[in-house]
Design a protein around this nucleic acid. Structure first.
Length: 197
DNA sequence: CTCCCGATTCGG
DNA sequence: CGAATCGGGAGA
């Protein structure tokens, strides 16, 4: 049904990979069932030169280690009580990554509602990076895995259904000029794009 | 809109 | 040990 995209897809520069991920599927297979969503919002983090990136100045710690590995690796990290999902991009050794921030449910909607709560409106299931991880059942156990093999993978999708837009990234501050870099990419008007703060 | 929650990391 | 964090939820 859903087939993982080839490993080569992730070798492109992070500022190209981030928009290229829009319109693709993110799929997670678990014992509870399969959940899939079409990605509608991403952000690029440009490692060494990007003050907003965890890997700024090539900061290499246990947490950021996976960003220095080969492209296509899964970088997950904890933010408060939530898990955020990133795709390692570009060349091995350069700590670039794309944060997946929003996606539109395609399959397994009821499973997502089980995980997120049935009182929520549909867009609120997945219109934010922490919400999306929870809806898909992704945890820190995925850290270090790859996005081109089961059970958690990117699959070729139908592409964008609306106009591609770019703008400043969400939730970063005290990062100088990096605050303004237009490295957030999203499908205009889609309700599964997270809210800007 | 405001407040509040709180896991983990990292720097000092 | 303290501060900060690529967020989310609840309640006016």
């Amino acid at each position: 049904m859903y087939r993982p995209i080839g490993p080569g897809f992730f070798k492109q520069p992070v500022l190209e990979l981030a928009p290229a991920l829009l319109g693709q599927y993110i799929v997670h297979e678990t014992p509870e069932g399969l959940a899939a969503a079409r990605i509608v919002e991403t952000e690029a983090y440009h490692g060494p030169e990007d003050r907003a990136a965890h890997s700024f100045n090539n900061r290499r710690t246990k947490r950021t280690e996976v960003m220095f590995a080969d492209p296509g690796r899964i970088y997950t990290y904890q933010m408060h009580t939530h898990t955020l999902m990133n795709v390692v991009a570009g060349e091995e050794g350069t700590p670039h990554a794309v944060l997946i921030r929003g996606a539109e449910p395609v399959e397994g909607l009821e499973l997502m509602q089980d995980r997120r709560g049935w009182h929520l409106k549909i867009p609120d299931l997945t219109n934010g990076p922490g919400k999306l991880s929870k809806a898909l059942g992704v945890t820190m156990e995925s850290y270090g895995g790859v996005w081109y093999e089961e059970p958690l993978f990117i699959a070729p999708g139908p592409g964008l259904a609306g106009e591609l837009k770019a703008g400043p990234r969400v939730g970063i501050q005290n990062t100088g000029e990096a605050v303004h870099y237009p490295w957030r990419f999203f499908e205009e008007g889609n309700p599964f794009v997270s809210k800007y703060r």
